[in-house]
Design a protein around this nucleic acid. Structure first.
Ligand SMILES: [Zn+2]
Ligand SMILES: [Zn+2]
Ligand SMILES: [Zn+2]
Ligand SMILES: [Zn+2]
Lengths: 165, 165
DNA sequence: TGTATTTTGTTATGTTATAACATACTATGT
DNA sequence: ACATAGTATGTTATAACATAACAAAATACA
């Protein structure tokens, strides 16, 4: 366990990313077994491609890779797989980038908050109860009932902030 | 001054929307004079169209209207005007909808937070220092330096929440 | 007036996402 | 094993959103 609570994605030069991918696939597998839904070969593969790194990836970038492996691949192929993964909380969509990232702690119906480094493109998901709480509470004060929170913070990750001074 | 702090957009059945539009245009005019930038006829008109209501409007919906008035209108016409308005904080982009809303309190470089009613499509911008503070602070704890905050809360506005029970 | 700068016109293209219907696969009960 | 219902994928077409590149016009200002 690291001493400082820097999110793992921002440790990118130091971590074993294959481990990220395989544990994400394993977690997805277990979640699908538990829910009696099917992590098909296509869906598993799209999940792996989303987990190609900790940077968000576009649907058409996924498609480009997939086409080399499966000649029938088309936009709908990718979007259907992504829809499945999104519905089941296995990936998240980054609205401000029209792109997708893997979820490191998959479970149903969570929004998370995203820290997006504009220098290295790394995205870290945090799941900060204080943030979620303030948002729901302050919206509720105005009579607004929140279903879904989109929180995307763009800036510089620790390493890139250091480099920029 | 209303007693309860319900954002004006959620008072939509009770407020004089022409007043919203004209005060937005006037505020834009003053801001442009102050900054010595040009609120051209085109830009003013696009601002008015964005202020057609308190629901977000897509660039191509703006274009459809504009075409009836200016035969040269094309996508670039609209996107260039929107870029100008965005840069100057006169409109905001709702990332989760690929659409735009007018800013009720224009000033440079602010992100705001948006409450988006999924039933009536009304969007209210709030500018909540507590929210902005908690986001910056909690990101900073992880060594992340925030440049820009995207906060979009989808749910039910007071009226629609009442109606839904 | 001449010249630089900004704005708009114009045409083409790039990028992201969905619709609609056909075919194939999987699970389940008999 | 077979029928069948439900789920997943293949396939083709199109919708929706956004930018590039260069020409012409308008504006600022010396
Ligand atoms: Zn990793
Ligand atoms: Zn997550
Ligand atoms: Zn109004
Ligand atoms: Zn604003």
């Amino acid at each position: 366990m690291a001493h400082r609570p820097i999110p793992e994605p921002f440790q990118r030069d130091r971590h074993d990313h294959q481990e990220c991918v395989s544990s994400a696939v394993e977690a997805a597998h277990e979640l699908c077994v538990r829910r009696r839904i099917r992590l098909t070969e296509l869906r598993r593969r799209v999940l792996e491609l989303v987990w190609g790194g900790h940077a968000p990836i576009g649907a058409y970038d996924i498609l480009d890779t997939l086409r080399g492996e499966r000649r029938s691949a088309a936009p709908a192929t990718v979007y259907r797989a992504l829809d499945f993964l999104l519905e089941n909380g296995l990936v998240h969509r980054i609205e401000s980038l029209n792109a997708f990232v893997g979820c490191g702690a998959p479970r149903q119906a969570h929004s998370g908050q995203f820290l997006i480094c504009r220098a290295c493109d790394t995205v870290a998901e945090i799941d900060d109860g204080e943030i979620a709480g303030v948002l729901s509470r302050n919206a509720a004060k105005l009579g607004f009932r929140v279903d879904r929170q989109t929180v995307e913070l763009t800036g510089l990750c620790p390493a890139c902030a250091d480099a920029a001074g």
